[in-house]
Design a protein around this nucleic acid. Sequence first.
RNA 1: GUCCCCAUGGCUUAAUUGGAUAGAGCAACUGCCUUCUAAGCAGUAGAUUCCAGGUUCGAAUCCUGGUGGGGACACCA
Length: 528
Amino acid sequence: MIRDEIKKLVKKAVEENFNIKLKEIEIEKPKQEKFGDYATNIALIIAQKIGKNSKEIAETITQSFDNLVTQSLFDRIETADHGFINFFLSKKYLQNEIKEILKKKEKFGKLKIGKGKKIQVEFISANPTGPLTVGNARGGPLGDVLANVLEKAGFKTEKAYYINDYGMQILALGHSVLKSKEAKYQGDYIDYLNKKIREKDSYKAGQEAAKIIIEEMIKKTTDRMGIRYDEWISENSFYQKGEVDKVLKFLKKKDLLYEKEGAVWFRSIKFGDKRDRVLVKSDSWKTYLAGDFALHKYKFEKKKFDKVINIWGADHYGDIPGLQAGVEAIGHKGKLDIILCQFITLLEKGDKKKMSKRKGLYVTMDELLDKVGPDVTRFFFLQKSASTHLNFDLDLAKEQSEKNPVYYVQYAYARICSILRELKTQSSKRKTIAQNLKLLNHPKELNLIKQLIRFPEIIEDTAYDYQVQRLPQYAQELAALFHQFYGDCRVISTDKELTQVRLALISAVKIVFKNILDLMGISAPKKM
RNA sequence: GUCCCCAUGGCUUAAUUGGAUAGAGCAACUGCCUUCUAAGCAGUAGAUUCCAGGUUCGAAUCCUGGUGGGGACACCA
């Protein structure tokens, strides 16, 4: 990655010229072309530290790069007004990168950040008490794509769905299925389950119902969304295997449990929590948190994940300290990251209503998939950061689907395929890797290459900060640059050499499109 | 009451985590199809980034105080 190269160069230059040790250097992509392809603000940052003018510092650093310009990596390196240092990549460097991409193909962008490390992303994990709604499935595309990105970054990655098939909501489901007085859930699926289930015991009926809901409803929906889980983990299985009791015993040994008012409490205050948490209620049922401890012990010890990412709804915000305390207590501090997804507010005839399964007030993911299809659905959710509060209106989603940017991206891909088909009919044998890459001189061509070489940076940044919306954004930018190129530069022409290098260029663009679409789990149509 | 998240053109939103002139899409308006797909391209218009202070070379981003919306404060999950 050229960005890494620049990072190293700047770091070295600063350390040599100013005798400062630096941890990390930010190399950014300036918004404006005139500020170069890459830029660093390092001079402004160290100016205060060493009490010198930032512009002077920048100039000193820039001067130490003089020999590099001749190495043909950069056309020029400039210092700007405030002390920014701007790097302008050379044409030669850009042209040669095409070869690199054609050689690596689908492995282009593959990094080694996570080499030798196992990571798990757990997402959706909605209670098995009804169909998936657009609310609780919001984390689906996010988690799925985050896991894909981490895999690309070199981690050994797994995707998991945790099934809460133990506890009061299962009992409530059972009551609902049996149509007893304590029924809480309603809907057609409850009627269906009522007919199907013979079991008369409420809790057992609830467990049976949960199993059916997972198998016949939730799994089908996640399949339709294009999500393939590596593991469906049952909470109840931890009880059956005695794993929950084991964790409790372990904590007791460490003197982290105590009894109060007939319940068993966990001393989470010891780990920075504001209050202690109940693990065993006075009615002897275990709480959700107790199961979660067993779950995370399983994740870290049995499955040996070095890092676990859980994607939760914002309503679980209050549970974070308790779980983090537990993770620390069982000896895995710092290995758990939790991403909170903000809520989706349902707009119904202009009124805002919080979705509620119990009230039967929700839009199911299946409805959305029926109306707009999986590609639009995924793109729609991927574009929005997890912290965005979203107003959701099915009609608006429908309207937006018709003009969804996903088609813009897919259309670019289809156009490339179309050109490649056309070329195939014209000549059967053509070398893909061109010799005359220096013919790629048009600004639209160079801009396109600049975007291509950013692809690995997108993977790197997202692997660190989990901001998945960067992917659809990148894809749109790439598509825009391709469409512009398409407008100005004909690929197929009478100039055979030019045709050949442009063929190489669009082949590289195709590779990157395929890469990014695969990461997002969105189809790459050869025709539209 | 305490804590968390959010507020960006008419709408949906982004901003490389403090960087240079706030970037897209939709909607509106003007051009462009006898040449590889017009689901496209080129262009116009539209923003005091909720308000008021503060921190500094520099703020949508950080701090303080408000306003508005969502969420959490259980022996529910």
